[in-house]
């Protein structure tokens, strides 16, 4: 189900917690599983639950509770824009609008070529750098004015 590399990441996470509390690693393992496959399929959730000897329903609860798990396939680049108030005051709404126009999709949608998915996010703890957005849950982009957005889209290959 998972690559050797991902399994190694799993093991590293499990090692952080007392042996009888393997379940603690579920968030990290689900995140790594998602990273490997681009999204979190039911099979992945079940495999992670099995790996951690926890009920699959408990893993499913976790997968559906936290925002950053994608339980449906997303585009190659998932861009999450912060539109919360502090960011909005410094252009968060505008950046989101600009992206929607450029990509021709709304929030929660994926471009026809499967390249981009756009999501509206909550505060990312980077309001001083607004507008901010995150690509694929991993890389935070700051001060995203039109020029920077254009560049980001170009760099997404």
């Amino acid at each position: 189900m998972f690559s050797a590399e991902t399994l190694q990441k799993f093991a590293r996470e499990v090692a952080k917690y007392p042996a009888i509390h393997k379940q603690s690693a579920v968030m990290a393992c689900l995140a790594h599983a998602q990273e490997e496959n681009g999204w979190l399929s039911p099979e992945s959730i079940e495999a992670v639950a099995q790996y951690l000897s926890m009920p699959v329903m408990a893993a499913f609860e976790v997968a559906t509770f936290y925002n950053m798990y994608d339980l449906k396939p997303v585009g190659k680049f998932k861009i999450t824009v912060c539109t919360n108030l502090p960011c909005a005051l410094s252009g968060g709404y505008h950046a989101g609008d600009y992206l929607q126009k450029k990509l021709g999709i709304g929030y929660g949608e994926t471009t026809a070529d499967g390249k981009f998915t756009l999501k509206e996010g909550e505060c990312m703890g980077a309001c001083g750098d607004a507008p901010v957005m995150i690509v694929n849950n991993r890389s935070m982009c700051s001060h995203m004015h039109p020029e920077q957005i254009d560049k980001l889209l170009e760099d997404c290959q």
Binding site: E46, M57, A58, E61, T64, F65
Partner: peptide
């Protein structure tokens, strides 16, 4: 644990896994 409460906020719902 066959039933759980998936999702959060007012979208929380009792369900089985898939």
């Amino acid at each position: 644990m066959e039933l759980g409460m998936a999702n959060r906020n007012m979208h929380s719902e009792i369900t089985t896994f898939l």
